[in-house]
Design a protein around this nucleic acid. Structure first.
Lengths: 112, 112
DNA sequence: CATTTGGTTAGGCATGTGACTAACTATAGC
DNA sequence: GCTATAGTTAGTCACATGCCTAACCAAATG
């Protein structure tokens, strides 16, 4: 899965923008239509659409259109993949500290 | 803390680059000096240094210099802040689904 | 003290990103 | 069918990002 990496690039890139994070926050409370989603932001609609595209292309969000209104919703799997990467790094780091601890313990025991 | 947001921008931006994620992965296994960190990458050292700067400016990494060698290490608190944001969104989403479930349950009970 | 070694600074260049306006398409409602 | 509404497409522009080379500084080391 070398593709995982490419996806992480896109996901983190997507989350680096406050507008897009705000959209994710909004969508974590439930599906929402384009215009309603856009409302809190004072940017032009096409600009806002670009953000939605970014979110969709990286898989954080999906949408379907019925009639003339397109509704977006969160796709939590992708969110979790990012979360997993982060927690993996942190747990590696913590394990290393544990090893360091027991190494220091050993040293102490030897000197006793 | 409106500053939290600005920091998240920088952190996710930092993690959006595969070189920088690789550095974080390396550092989660323990502190490392600049040149050794740079070795696996075929980019010029100044380019690589820029990546380290990005990681340091957003607080993911810290460094100190002794003699002429600078050693980098992971700063896991920042990592956790990003992780927390992600898990908050996901848990909001999950809670909403639960509510939806019990809403549907209620409907079902009423019709019985 | 001359030289290598580890790291840093400066400046330049191609590409990517995020915003805008203007013009367009397609459904809904009267 | 006409008009308003929801969304889309196209094209432009300023600025940020990521890479490079060249030159530099500072601590080992012979």
């Amino acid at each position: 899965m070398p593709n995982q990496m490419a996806e992480l690039n896109l996901v983190f890139q997507a989350l680096a923008d406050p507008t897009r994070r705000a959209v994710v926050e909004r969508l974590s409370r439930g599906p929402t239509a384009t215009t309603e989603l856009a409302q809190p932001f004072k940017m032009a609609l096409p600009s806002f659409l670009q953000h939605l595209d970014v979110l969709q292309k990286c898989g954080l969000v999906q949408s379907r259109k019925s009639g003339r209104v397109r509704t977006y919703e969160l796709a939590p799997n992708t969110l979790r993949e990012a979360e997993d990467w982060l927690s993996a790094q942190r747990s590696l780091w913590e394990r290393r500290l544990d090893q360091l601890d027991s190494f220091l313990e050993d040293l102490k025991e030897q000197s006793e």
